[in-house]
Write a protein that binds this DNA or RNA. Structure first.
Lengths: 188, 188
DNA sequence: GATTGTCTACCTTCTAGTAGATAGACTATC
DNA sequence: GATAGTCTATCTACTAGAAGGTAGACAATC
C-alpha cells in the first residue's frame, strides 16, 4: 500500500522533470530499487500510472488552494498560496507544473490523463478567477477584462515562468513571477 | 539540397506538435516518403537534426521580427509582428512555439539544441524589451518594473498562451493573447 | 570517375508489457 | 494449534516492437 504511493510520488517527479513520454518503467524501477514487473503489479500500464499521477496532482493542488483561500480574507494573502507553489517549483530548478508538462506534451499523453490535467487547469483558473474578482471588488487589485480572462493570463504566465526559469535560471523565473504580481497591483 | 530543407521543415513541425523526444526518424521517413537511412545521409544523427531545427527557428524568427520592427515607428505595430506569430500558432491548434516545446523538454533535449533555443528565447526577449521601452517612452504603453522584466513576462505569458490554447481551444488561447495586450495599454 | 542521394538489410539498445514462480502474511477450517 | 487455501508483493526471464544508427550496394549527375 505504501509502495503504491511511493511509485506515484517518483512518477510525479519524473513527469515534472522529464515529461510523460520521456520517463520509463525502467527509470522508475531503478529509482525505487524494485523491478519493472513489480510496478506493473501496482499500475497495470503506463497510461494508468499517468492517470493516477494526474489525479493525485489535482487532489493535492485542490487541497492546497482550498486551504489557502480559507486561511484569510485578504485576496493578496489568498493568491499567495498559488504563487508559493509556483515559486517553489521555480526554485527547485528541475520541476515544472505537471499540467504545464502535460500541456506541452498534449499530443503524446494518453487521453484520460490529458483530460484530468485539463480538469486541473480549469480548477486553478476558476480558483484564481474567484480571488481576483474579490480583489478588484475590494479595490486592491486592478486588471482589464473579466476575472476569468485575467485568471487565464496569470495561469499562462505562471506556466511560462516555470519553464522560463528552469531554462534560464531561478532568478529570471522568480522575476517573471514578481512581474505578474506587479501587474495586478493598483495605482500605477 | 531541397530535400534537406524539406526534412528540416517537417522536423520543425514535429518538434512543435510532439516535442523533440516524441518524434522519430521513422515518423519523418513516413511523412517524407523516403527511408530513415536517407535522412541520416542529410543529418548524421537526431541531435544534429535537432540543432538544425533550432538554428532555422532562430533565423526565421529573427528575420520576421527584424522586418516587423523596421516596418513602422509605432511600437504597437512593431510588437504586432510577434503577436501575429503567436496568434497563428494558436490558431493552428497543433503547433506551439518550438522554444516552448524545448523549454518544457529541457532535461531531455541534447545540449547544443537547448543552447540554441535559449539563444532564440533571449533574442525574442531583447526584441520585446526594446519595443516596449520605446512604447513607454512615447507614452503609449504602461507597465511596472524594467522593460526587460516586462518583456520576460510577455514572453512567458505568450508561451503559456500557446500551450493553454492547444489544450483548451483556440478561443481561450487567443483570449489570453488579447489580455496580454490589454495589460500593456495605458490609462486604465 | 567522383559525388550525391537513395535504397535494402541489418545491428543494438531501449521500450512497455507478460508469464510464471516464490516467499510471506493473513484467514478460514479441521 | 496445525493445516490448507488465498492474497500480496515481489522476483527472474522473456517477448515483440520501436528506437537510433550503420554498412554497403546502386544509380544518376556533375
Amino acid at each position: 500500500m505504501d509502495r503504491k504511493q511511493e511509485i506515484l510520488e517518483v512518477a510525479t517527479e519524473l513527469v515534472q522533470t522529464h515529461g510523460y513520454s520521456a520517463f520509463s518503467y525502467h527509470d522508475l524501477s531503478e529509482r525505487l530499487g524494485i523491478t519493472k514487473a513489480s510496478i506493473h503489479h501496482h499500475f497495470a500500464g503506463k497510461a494508468d500510472l499517468g492517470f493516477a499521477v494526474a489525479e493525485k496532482c489535482l487532489q493535492d493542488i485542490a487541497a492546497a488552494l482550498t486551504a489557502s483561500k480559507q486561511s484569510s480574507n485578504d485576496p493578496w494573502k489568498q493568491i499567495e498560496g498559488y504563487f508559493a507553489i509556483v515559486s517553489s517549483d521555480i526554485r527547485s530548478q528541475e520541476r515544472i507544473c505537471p499540467a504545464g508538462s502535460t500541456q506541452a506534451d498534449i499530443n503524446v499523453v494518453p487521453e484520460p490523463m490529458a483530460e484530468k490535467m485539463i480538469e486541473l487547469v480549469q480548477y486553478i483558473v476558476s480558483w484564481l478567477s474567484d480571488i481576483i474578482k474579490d480583489g478588484r471588488d475590494q479595490g486592491v487589485m486592478t486588471f482589464p477584462g473579466t476575472p476569468r480572462e485575467q485568471a487565464e493570463l496569470i495561469f499562462s504566465a505562471a506556466q511560462g515562468a516555470m519553464q522560463y526559469g528552469r531554462a534560464n535560471g531561478e532568478k529570471r523565473g522568480l522575476s517573471v513571477l514578481k512581474q505578474i504580481k506587479a501587474t495586478l497591483k493598483p495605482k500605477r
